[in-house]
């Protein structure tokens, strides 16, 4: 490792992990700003950027947890999951995973078990804003697929679509804790599970409640289940369901064998 490479390695690790490594500090000049302060300015800049980013992505989690506790979690997140993408808009996707661990380990979070599902909702709402909703479904090619090949059809979901389920009323919790008022269809808070999806409509994120069967089909499509297997799902009329999914733009294309269409 060259001296410059070593210095950059040490610099980044000292600011990401908030350390004051004496070896690195000895590389710095002692002048108007002391070496410890020189380093801490960069450490504070990074933690400030991370906090600001996560606050913007997870406004409801912030509102529920309170600023101080949320910032403690941000600091922990920064250490566990250093940013690997130069675009901060892509940072924060494992926050829900960390919250799941926190809820099982931290007694302060007893009764907040819904935070994982809420964070997942907020992450997908955030990423939906930047994702592509381009539909490439070629109906002409689709209609020409020979009958003996139809079992090999695999549908592709719209890149902006995410599918969710929760045993908690996370949509109500989200609505109560964010200033963004999502467009949702009417629903009754379920006794068992809530199913919904987030997708881009007219270039903006939209949340829609779906029924259990639609959730089941969308999940199967996401898992690359072929058309033949979809046709054998109990309680689901695929001939009725598919046109609806196509009309909504939730299915955006298909592939046959290894050929994308």
């Amino acid at each position: 490792m060259s001296s410059l490479e070593q210095l950059q390695h040490d610099f980044i690790h000292n600011i990401v992990n908030d350390k004051n490594n004496q070896g690195f500090l000895s590389e710095l000049k002692t002048e108007k700003i002391p070496p410890e302060l020189q380093l801490s300015i960069y450490q504070r800049n990074l933690s400030g950027s991370i906090q600001k980013t996560l606050q913007q992505v997870y406004p409801a989690c912030l509102s529920i947890l309170g600023e101080d506790f949320f910032h403690t979690l941000c600091y922990k997140y920064q250490n566990l999951y250093p940013s690997l993408d130069s675009n901060l808009n892509n940072y924060g996707n494992y926050f829900n995973t960390m919250l799941l661990g926190e809820c099982s380990e931290n007694t302060k979070l007893l009764g907040f078990e819904y935070l994982h599902d809420l964070a997942l909702l907020e992450w997908h709402w955030h990423t939906c804003y930047y994702s592509s909703s381009v539909i490439t479904f070629d109906f002409t090619s689709f209609s020409k697929i020979p009958e003996n090949q139809q079992s090999k059809i695999i549908f592709n979901l719209n890149k902006s679509l995410s599918i969710h389920t929760s045993i908690f009323p996370v949509i109500d919790i989200w609505k109560d804790n964010t200033i963004e008022i999502p467009t949702t269809n009417e629903y009754t808070t379920p006794d068992n599970s809530l199913y919904f999806c987030i997708y881009q409509r007219a270039l903006t994120p939209t949340l829609e409640i779906i029924d259990r069967n639609t959730y089941k089909i969308l999940t199967a499509i996401k898992d690359k289940t072929d058309l033949q297997s979809l046709c054998h799902f109990d309680d689901i009329d695929i001939n009725q369901a598919l046109p609806n999914l196509l009309q909504k733009g939730w299915i955006s294309g298909f592939s046959l064998l290894d050929k994308a269409c």
Partner: peptide, 24 residues
């Protein structure tokens, strides 16, 4: 520089003013 070995600082980090830095 803003990143090293893939880890991002999201800040504009200075380098020493040396020949090695210039060449980089």
């Amino acid at each position: 520089f803003t990143s090293h070995n893939g880890i991002q600082s999201h800040d504009l980090l200075p380098v020493p003013y040396t020949e090695q830095s210039i060449q980089t």
